[in-house]
Nucleic acid binder design. Structure first.
Lengths: 139, 139
DNA sequence: TCCATTGCTTCGAGACTTGAAGCATTCACG
DNA sequence: CGTGAATGCTTCAAGTCTCGAAGCAATGGA
C-alpha cells in the first residue's frame, strides 16, 4: 500500500463530494432543502420498499434522534410521509410522496450535472465505479 | 456519459467519505475534535507557507464567519495560532503549533488506517488516484 | 487625501447532531 | 398466558456548525 496514493485518493474523495455539495447549494435552496435533507431524500429509492427509520439511520451514518429531525423536515416540506410498518407496529417507514419523487429526481439530475465527476469519459467512469464499488457499502 | 455509472460513482464517493468519518469519530473525540475541525486541520499542510483565512475558506468550501469559528476551536485546543501576514496586515494566517503538527499527523495516520479505501491494492489505488486527480481540485 | 475595496471578526438566527430519558410495541421465558 | 427485558422511535436539552448582515482595520486607486 502506498501512503501518498491513499492520502491523495481520500482527499480527492472528500473534495469531490464537498464541491458537488457546494455547486448544488442553490438548487437545494430552491426547494428549501440542505445537504443533510437532500442526502436523506437521495437515500430513499422510489423503486424499493419504504425503509424503516432504523435502516435509514444506518444508511446515513446518523443516530435515531437525528433522523427523526431530518425526517421531520422532509415531512414538513411534503416530500415524505411516515407510515406504521404493519409487520412491526413499533417501526415507522419513510414513504416518498409524489412530490418527493419529483423533487428527488430533479435534484439528482442536477447533482449529476454539476459534479466534477461528470468531466470523466464513459470509460473512465466505468473504471472508477468498478474500483469504488469494491469498497463502498453495497447499495 | 453513463448516468447509472455516474450516479454510482458519486454515491460511492459520498459513502466512502461518510464511512471514513464515522470510523474516525472516536479518534477525533480523543482530541476533542469533530469532522469540521479535523477537516481544517488536515487542510493545513505543515510543509507549506501558512495559508490565510481567505485561502483556507476556499479550500474548505466555507465562508469567512464559519472559518473564524472553526479556527477559534483549533486555537482554543492549542493546535493552531493566528498570525498577522506582514505582507498585508489585514490578513491573518493559520500557523500549526508543534502540538498541531503532532495531532494532525496522528489523526491522518488513523484516517488512512480506517478508510475503506485502504482495502484497495497498490495498483488499484494508483488507478483511482489518477482518475480522481483528473477532476478533484489541484492540491 | 478620500473613499471604495478587501480581509477578517462579531452578532444573531437557524440548522444539525448528540446523549439521556420516555413511550409503545414486541419478544423471551417461566 | 403474564411479566420483564429488549427494540424502535420520539422528545428534550445542550452543544456544534453554518450563514447573512453589520462592523472594524488596513489597503489601494483616483
Amino acid at each position: 500500500m502506498s501512503t501518498p496514493d491513499l492520502t491523495a485518493a481520500l482527499a480527492a474523495t472528500h473534495d469531490i463530494w464537498m464541491r458537488t455539495n457546494d455547486l448544488l447549494t442553490q438548487a437545494l435552496a430552491g426547494h428549501r432543502l440542505t445537504p443533510a435533507t437532500f442526502q436523506a431524500l437521495w437515500a430513499l429509492d422510489p423503486d424499493e420498499q419504504p425503509p424503516s427509520m432504523k435502516v435509514m439511520a444506518e444508511r446515513l451514518y446518523c443516530n435515531a434522534p437525528n433522523l427523526t429531525f431530518i425526517t421531520g423536515q422532509l415531512v414538513e416540506r411534503g416530500l415524505v410521509e411516515r407510515a406504521v410498518d404493519p409487520q412491526d407496529r413499533r417501526s415507522r417507514v419513510m414513504v416518498l410522496t409524489p412530490e418527493g419523487r419529483r423533487v428527488r429526481a430533479e435534484l439528482l439530475r442536477t447533482a449529476l450535472e454539476v459534479t466534477p465527476l461528470a468531466a470523466l469519459s464513459g470509460e473512465e467512469l466505468r473504471s472508477l465505479t468498478a474500483l469504488l464499488g469494491r469498497v463502498a457499502r453495497p447499495a
